[in-house]
Design a protein around this nucleic acid. Structure first.
Length: 789
DNA sequence: GCTCGTTGCTTACCT
DNA sequence: ACAGGTAAGCAACGAGCG
C-alpha cells in the first residue's frame, strides 16, 4: 500500500548489525507513523590520481576482503568534482560505522588521490539521496512491519522503496508542548549535582496548562509525572527556552540521581546530544527557541521576556518577573510561592507563544535546506547553506567535498564613503537588489569556474578587476546554477503571493518560505569566503567583493555625471539628494551599462549624519525614525543614554529644534541629579566572547563575570553580563558591579553623565554646533541663540 | 612617580 | 562556526618630565 506522510524527524539505527533509516512522520489522516527503510547502505567515493588505473584500484580493494569485511559493493561511476568530469570508485558498505575508517585506509592505497563523502551522516545521506523534505509531504510504498517495535506511533511500516516528495498543500496539525523548569538553589546558579528541580511547567496545544510541583522531597515523582504526561500527550514538537543548554541536561542529571527514567521520546528512551550540540528526542522535534532568537537582531539581551515582548506574545509589563538570582526566597516562603508558580507557568506560556510565531519559518528553512527541524534550528548559518548546497550538488552529479581545515587569508571588502556631515532634507536611498549573488551569477564566480594561477586559460575567460583572478565564462558554475535557481524560486513565490489573500495561513507559510530562500541566497557570498565552507575558495569571495567595489564606484560616478549629489554610500547603496527624474536616469543607466538592477528603497524627509561612517538617523515620511549604528540601537549602552539620544534625535529631526533638544537634555540631567531614576536604566550589557581567564585586559564586564563566577553563578562564552558603575575610586573595572548586587543610591551618576548621557546626546547635537558646556554646564541665559537660528 | 598621548584589546554594529 | 569595514571606550604602555 501507499501512504502519504509529513516528515518530522529522521534517525538511523543499527538493527542486527545492519543500518536502518527511520522516518518519523504524520500521515494524511493525522496518524503518527514510523517508516523504516532497511535497504539503506552507506557509501563513499575514492578518486584516482590517474583515471586509467581506476579499475586496477577497484579490483585491488575487491580482493582485500579480509581487510574490508563490511564492503558490500564496489563500482566505478562518472561524476563531477569541482565541475571536472571524473571517474570515481563508489564503495558501498554494510555498516555505517566503518565508512570513515575504510575511506581513510583506502586513501593510502597506491594511486588513490582522495576520498570524499565519507563524512556525511547516514540520515543526512538518505535525505540528500532521496531528495526528502523535512517538514514536507512524501509518498511511499510500504508494508506493515512484522517486527512491531516498541515505538509510540499509530503504525510502523517497512518501506518497499525510498519515499518521494510530493506537492501537497497544508500541514498536519502538530501537537506542540512547551516546558520550563525551576530549580532550587540558595547560593549561585543551581547545580544539578546538588540542587533539586521544584517546578516543571508545561503548556501544550489543546491542553490545559500543567504544573508539576515538588512539595517536600518528591522530586522523583514530579519528574516521572512529567514524563508520563509527555507520553500521554505524545507531542510532535517539544519547545523550551535555553533547553538545550539548561533544562534538558539538568533533567537528565537529576533523573539519573533520582533513579527516574526520562523516557520522553517515541522509542521509550532518553534525550541525547546530537550533531550541532543540541539535544535530540527521537521521533519528535526538540526545539530550543533561544537558538532562533539569534536571528532577531533587534533584541539585544535575549531573555525570554525580551523576545516575548518584541514578538508581541507577552508584553514585559504584563509579565510576572523574578530575577534568577532571587528565585529561592519565593520557593521557601509560602506567601510568595504562588508568585513563583505564576512566573513559571507564564514562562512556559511565553515559550509556546514564541513557538507559534517562529515555527513556520524554521519549518520552511528545514524543508529548503534538507536539515531536520531540530537540526536546522540549532545549526549556524554556514551549515544551513552547506546543506542546501550539498542537496543541490547531489542533484547535479557533483561530488561533495569534505570539510577540511583551510588556511585563513583575509581579503579586501566593500567601500564605505565618508558621509557629508549635517542634516539633509529629502534624501533617497538607492540600493542593489542582492548585489553579491547577482555579481556571482553575472560573472560566473564559482569554485568550479575559477582558474588557478598555474592553470592555462581556456576559451572565454573573465579577468576580475583589481585582483586579477580568472574565471571561465562557460559553462555555468555551481554557484551560478544554485543562485539563479534560488532567485527564480523567490520570484515565483512572490508571483504566487500576489494571487493569495494575505490573511490566509497559506500566505503566511509562503511568506516564510520566501524569507528562508532570501536568507540562504544572501548568505552565499559570505559562505564562499568562509574557511569552514565545503566549497571555500577565497578567490571567489574576493572577486565578488572586487566586482562590488567597481560596480558601486561606477554608480557613484554616473550619479555625479547625471547631477545627483551623493551624500553617503556603503557597499551596495548610495544616498542621494532626492530628484525623481535624475534618479530614474541613473536606474536606467545602471541597467544598461552594468547589467545590474538598482532600486529606490526609501526617501528620508530629513537625515542626520555625523562625520562617522555607518551611523545616521533619518526621518521617514510616515513619521518613524530610522536610527542606524548610533547608541540608540546598540546593546552596550545604558538605557539612560539611549533614551536621551532617541529623544534628542526626535526633537532635532521631527521638530527641527536643537534648542528644545538641548533643553530636554538639561532637564533630564537635572531630574537625574534630583534622584528621579531607576537602576534598570543604568545597566550596561556586554557579551563574554571567551572564557574569562583568556582576557588580556581587565575590562569591566570581565571583572564582573569573574565575581559572579566566584559567587557560584554560571557564565559561559556567549553569555551577556549586566553591570552598573558604582561610586568609588580607581579604574572603571574596579567600580563595575553586577547590577543585581547594587542599589540605586550606589550608582556613580557622574560617570553616567560624562561617559554615557552627554556623549550620546552630543553625538547628535555636536553636528548642530551645540557645545558640551551647554548640556552640562551652568545656565547661560540667551546663549542658545548663538548657534540656534 | 605622575601626566598625557598612543596603541591595542574589545564589543557591537552596517551592508 | 557566513564576509569585511567601521566606531568607540577603556586599559595598558611608554615617553617626557625635575
Amino acid at each position: 500500500m501507499k501512504i502519504d506522510f509529513w516528515l518530522l524527524d529522521i534517525n538511523h539505527e543499527i538493527v542486527d548489525a545492519r543500518p536502518e533509516i527511520r522516518l518519523w512522520g504524520i500521515d494524511s489522516k493525522g496518524k503518527r507513523v514510523l517508516v523504516r527503510d532497511k535497504s539503506f547502505r552507506p557509501y563513499f567515493y575514492l578518486l584516482a590520481e590517474d583515471e586509467t588505473a581506476i579499475n586496477r584500484i577497484a579490483d585491488q580493494i575487491a580482493k582485500e576482503k579480509s581487510q574490508y569485511p563490511d564492503v558490500e559493493k564496489i563500482g566505478v561511476l562518472e561524476k563531477r568534482f569541482f565541475g571536472k568530469k571524473v571517474k570515481a570508485i563508489r564503495v558501498v558498505c554494510r555498516d555505517t560505522e566503518v565508512i570513515a575508517k575504510y575511506a581513510k585506509s583506502m586513501a593510502k592505497i597506491k594511486g588513490v588521490e582522495d576520498h570524499v563523502e565519507d563524512d556525511l551522516r547516514p540520515s543526512f545521506r538518505y535525505i540528500v539521496d532521496n531528495d526528502l523534505r523535512p517538514c514536507g509531504w512524501h509518498r511511499v510504498e510500504v508494508r506493515e512491519s512484522l517486527d512491531q517495535l516498541d515505538a509510540q506511533v499509530d503504525g510502523v511500516f517497512d518501506a518497499a522503496e525510498a519515499p518521494t516528495p510530493i506537492d501537497r498543500a497544508g500541514m498536519p496539525s502538530l501537537r506542540i508542548l512547551a516546558f520550563s523548569i525551576v530549580c532550587f538553589s540558595q547560593r549561585g546558579a543551581p547545580k544539578a549535582s546538588r540542587n533539586p528541580i521544584v517546578i516543571i511547567s508545561t503548556c501544550a496545544t489543546g491542553q490545559k496548562e500543567k504544573q508539576f510541583v515538588a512539595d517536600d522531597s518528591n522530586e522523583r515523582k514530579i519528574i516521572s509525572n512529567f514524563v508520563s504526561y509527555m507520553q500521554r500527550y505524545d507531542p510532535d514538537v517539544i519547545v523550551g527556552y535555553g533547553s538545550n543548554r539548561f533544562d534538558w541536561p539538568y533533567l537528565l542529571e537529576r533523573s539519573k540521581l533520582m533513579g527516574a527514567k526520562l523516557t520522553v521520546d517515541r522509542v521509550r528512551s532518553g534525550p541525547h546530544t546530537s550533531l550541532y550540540g543540541h539535544i535530540s528526542v527521537t521521533g519528535r522535534a526538540n526545539f530550543d527557541l533561544f537558538d532562533l532568537a539569534e536571528d532577531i537582531p533587534e533584541v539585544k539581551v535575549k531573555s525570554l521576556e525580551n523576545v516575548a515582548d518584541f514578538l508581541g506574545v507577552v508584553k514585559r509589563k504584563e509579565r510576572t518577573l523574578i530575577d534568577e538570582t532571587e528565585l529561592w526566597p519565593y520557593w521557601v516562603d509560602d506567601k510568595k510561592r504562588p508568585t513563583l508558580l505564576k512566573f513559571s507557568i507564564e514562562t512556559s506560556r511565553s515559550i509556546l507563544g514564541i513557538a507559534s510565531r517562529m515555527l513556520d519559518f524554521a519549518m520552511q528553512l528545514a524543508s529548503l535546506t534538507g536539515l531536520p527541524l531540530d537540526h536546522v534550528e540549532a545549526a549556524a548559518v554556514g551549515f544551513r547553506v552547506d546543506w542546501y548546497l550539498i542537496k543541490q550538488a547531489y542533484k547535479l552529479g557533483e561530488l561533495i567535498p569534505r570539510r577540511v581545515e583551510q588556511f585563513y587569508s583575509p581579503y579586501r571588502g566593500a567601500i564605505v564613503l565618508p558621509p557629508k556631515r549635517g542634516i539633509h532634507d529629502k534624501v533617497a536611498v538607492l540600493d542593489f537588489t542582492a548585489m553579491y549573488p547577482n555579481l556571482m551569477i553575472l560573472h560566473n564566480l564559482s569554485p568550479d569556474t575559477f582558474i588557478g594561477p598555474d592553470e592555462a586559460p581556456q576559451n572565454e575567460i573573465t579577468i576580475v578587476p583589481e585582483v586579477n583572478h580568472r574565471f571561465r565564462k562557460d559553462p555555468p558554475g555551481f554557484y551560478k546554477t544554485v543562485l539563479s535557481s534560488l532567485i527564480a524560486v523567490r520570484e515565483q513565490i512572490r508571483k504566487q503571493l500576489r494571487t493569495i489573500d494575505p490573511k490566509t495561513i497559506e500566505y503566511k507559510i509562503l511568506k516564510e518560505r520566501e524569507k528562508a530562500v532570501k536568507v540562504i541566497t544572501n548568505a552565499t557570498y559570505g559562505y564562499a569566503g568562509w574557511v569552514g565552507a565545503r566549497w571555500y575558495v577565497r578567490e571567489v569571495a574576493e572577486s565578488a567583493a572586487a566586482f562590488g567595489r567597481v560596480t558601486i564606484q561606477e554608480v557613484i560616478k554616473a550619479a555625479g555625471e547625471i547631477g545627483l549629489e551623493v551624500i553617503y554610500s556603503d557597499t551596495d547603496s548610495i544616498f542621494v539628494k532626492h530628484d525623481a527624474s535624475k534618479t530614474s536616469l541613473l536606474l536606467k543607466r545602471v541597467k544598461d551599462e552594468l547589467n545590474m538592477e538598482i532600486r529606490p528603497d526609501k526617501i528620508y524627509e530629513r537625515i542626520l549624519f555625523t562625520e562617522a561612517k555607518k551611523r545616521y538617523a533619518g526621518l521617514l515620511p510616515d513619521g518613524t525614525l530610522d536610527i542606524v549604528g548610533m547608541e540608540v540601537v546598540r546593546g552596550d549602552w545604558a538605557n539612560v543614554a539611549k533614551n536621551v539620544q532617541e529623544k534628542v534625535l526626535e526633537l532635532v529631526l521631527k521638530d527641527k529644534s536643537p534648542k528644545r533638544a538641548t533643553e530636554f537634555v538639561r532637564r533630564y540631567i537635572r531630574d537625574l541629579r534630583e534622584g528621579k531614576f531607576e537602576l534598570i536604566d543604568f545597566i550596561i550589557w556586554k557579551t563574554l566572547t571567551k572564557p574569562v581567564e583568556e582576557y588580556e585586559v581587565r575590562a569591566p564586564h570581565v571583572e564582573v563575570a569573574k565575581r559572579l563566577l566566584k559567587e557560584g553563578w554560571e557564565l559561559t562564552l556567549g553569555d551577556k553580563v549586566g553591570y552598573v558603575i558604582t561610586k568609588g575610586l580607581g579604574k572603571l573595572f574596579e567600580k563595575a558591579k553586577p547590577y543585581s548586587m547594587v542599589s540605586a543610591d550606589e550608582l556613580d551618576l557622574e560617570y553616567y553623565l560624562s561617559n554615557q548621557i552627554v556623549p550620546a546626546a552630543l553625538r547628535v547635537l555636536e553636528v548642530l554646533g551645540v557645545p558640551e558646556e551647554e548640556l552640562l554646564g551652568k545656565e547661560r541665559p540667551g546663549s542658545l541663540a548663538d548657534y540656534v537660528r
